[in-house]
Amino acid sequence: MESDMIREEAYQLLEKNVIDTIHEWQVKLGYTEEMIRIYYNRDSLEHLVKLSLPTVVEAKEFLIDWRETVKDRLGKVHLSNKEERFCIGVPADGTKYVYEKKKESTFLTDLMKVLKEPSCTIEQILGVFKKQSPNVVCEKVTGEEFDYVIYYEDYALDSFRYCFSFGQMGAFYHRFSEYDYQTIR
């Protein structure tokens, strides 16, 4: 019984990550009703869903089972892999579901507006984050390709690490899971 609950939580974590990733792409690139492919390395997937998936076979089995739990929302998800790199292809009806579900969400839209300003500052970026919650961590990064990393103390609000750089072309960001952020440092 407990393992069923753990597995269900793992499915929810992956679904949330997939939806959040599609939403980010839709905000950045605009909404189109087409398949979107998201890639996960086995170790990142394992960390994300908080399950032990030590082999490619176990990761595939997990994804096949997960696909069944999301079909009513995301449609017939396509799965493939090349060794330890997995592709989750969310079909057009799934990307439409994400668009409809998240279109009222303003955080990323507000962030993109601020980043488009040529004189964008870290204070303006922090202002966008603090609209959702005042409990934001902003760290100056030295010796990295990024200038700042910003994230929420409450991972339930948003579990990503947002890494910002400022240069001649303006400000830009990359978003990572906590695990992936730690692996690139």
Rank of each mutant, 00 (worst) to 15 (best):
D147V: 04
K103I: 10
K71N: 04
S133L: 13
N81L: 08
F146P: 05
Y99C: 04
Y97F: 15
K116A: 15
Q124P: 02
T142L: 14
D72K: 12
N135I: 05
K103N: 09
K101A: 13
I122K: 03
K76Y: 06
A156P: 01
I122C: 07
I122D: 04
K71A: 14
V98S: 04
N81P: 02
F129E: 01
P134R: 08
D93F: 06
M112G: 01
L74R: 00
L115W: 03
S105I: 09
F146A: 11
Y151G: 00
E104R: 13
L74P: 04
K131E: 14
A92T: 01
V90N: 02
A156N: 11
D72Q: 07
S159E: 04
V149C: 08
L126R: 10
A156F: 07
E144D: 11
K131D: 08
D110C: 08
Y97N: 07
K130Q: 15
I125Y: 02
G75A: 09
S119P: 02
Y151E: 00
P91D: 03
K96E: 15
T69Q: 02
D158S: 08
Y152S: 05
C120P: 08
T95D: 02
P118W: 05
Y151N: 03
C87P: 01
H78R: 12
V70F: 05
I150L: 13
K71T: 15
K116M: 06
V149Q: 01
